[in-house]
Amino acid sequence: MQRVNMIMAESPGLITICLLGYLLSAECTVFLDHENANKILNRPKRYNSGKLEEFVQGNLERECMEEKCSFEEAREVFENTERTTEFWKQYVDGDQCESNPCLNGGSCKDDINSYECWCPFGFEGKNCELDVTCNIKNGRCEQFCKNSADNKVVCSCTEGYRLAENQKSCEPAVPFPCGRVSVSQTSKLTRAETVFPDVDYVNSTEAETILDNITQSTQSFNDFTRVVGGEDAKPGQFPWQVVLNGKVDAFCGGSIVNEKWIVTAAHCVETGVKITVVAGEHNIEETEHTEQKRNVIRIIPHHNYNAAINKYNHDIALLELDEPLVLNSYVTPICIADKEYTNIFLKFGSGYVSGWGRVFHKGRSALVLQYLRVPLVDRATCLRSTKFTIYNNMFCAGFHEGGRDSCQGDSGGPHVTEVEGTSFLTGIISWGEECAMKGKYGIYTKVSRYVNWIKEKTKLT
Rank of each mutant, 00 (worst) to 15 (best):
N135D: 14
L163Y: 01
C141Y: 00
D232S: 13
R373M: 08
F424G: 01
E286N: 10
D315H: 01
L103Y: 08
K39W: 05
E142C: 02
G122T: 03
Q2I: 08
V248T: 15
K68E: 15
P44G: 12
A436R: 12
E67L: 06
T29R: 08
T389G: 14
Y444W: 01
V199M: 11
I210R: 09
N5F: 10
S255K: 00
C28P: 05
F71I: 14
R43G: 15
L325R: 01
R191F: 09
A266E: 01
P301R: 10
F348I: 08
C117S: 00
P324L: 03
F345E: 01
R373E: 07
D110P: 14
Q2P: 12
G363L: 07
I214S: 12
I275A: 04
T194V: 12
D33G: 12
N306V: 07
M65A: 14
Q57T: 05
C97W: 01
K45W: 08
E27R: 06
S365P: 11
P172I: 05
L32I: 12
N328I: 01
F221Y: 09
R140N: 15
A207I: 11
Y371G: 14
E73T: 08
F144A: 00
V30Q: 15
L327P: 04
P197N: 05
Y22E: 03
G50K: 11
T386C: 08
L24H: 03
N138V: 05
E82W: 04
E270T: 12
N151C: 04
C435N: 04
R180F: 04
N80R: 09
T158C: 05
H303Q: 11
L130C: 04
I7M: 12
G357I: 07
T186D: 12
V228Y: 08
V183C: 05
K362L: 06
Y330N: 04
E288F: 05
C268V: 00
T218P: 14
D212N: 10
T342Q: 03
G105S: 05
C28T: 09
S182R: 10
M65P: 14
I429A: 12
K387E: 11
Y450E: 01
C119G: 00
R62P: 13
Y444Q: 00
E323P: 04
K459H: 11
V56R: 06
G58W: 06
N138S: 05
C134L: 03
G413D: 05
C128S: 00
V331M: 01
I210K: 07
G229I: 13
I275H: 05
D338N: 10
I210H: 11
E285C: 06
K51P: 14
F224D: 10
V77I: 10
E433F: 09
N222K: 10
L130V: 15
N304Q: 12
C119R: 00
I214Q: 14
S350M: 08
I334L: 05
Q2N: 11
V77W: 08
T458N: 01
F78V: 15
S329A: 10
G50L: 09
R384H: 10
T426W: 00
V228I: 14
V263P: 00
E76S: 10
Q237P: 07
L130P: 04
K446T: 03
H302D: 02
G439K: 09
C435Y: 03
H282C: 06
S187L: 12
A207R: 05
R46M: 11
A279Y: 01
G412Y: 06
E420M: 13
N295M: 08
Y47H: 14
S354P: 05
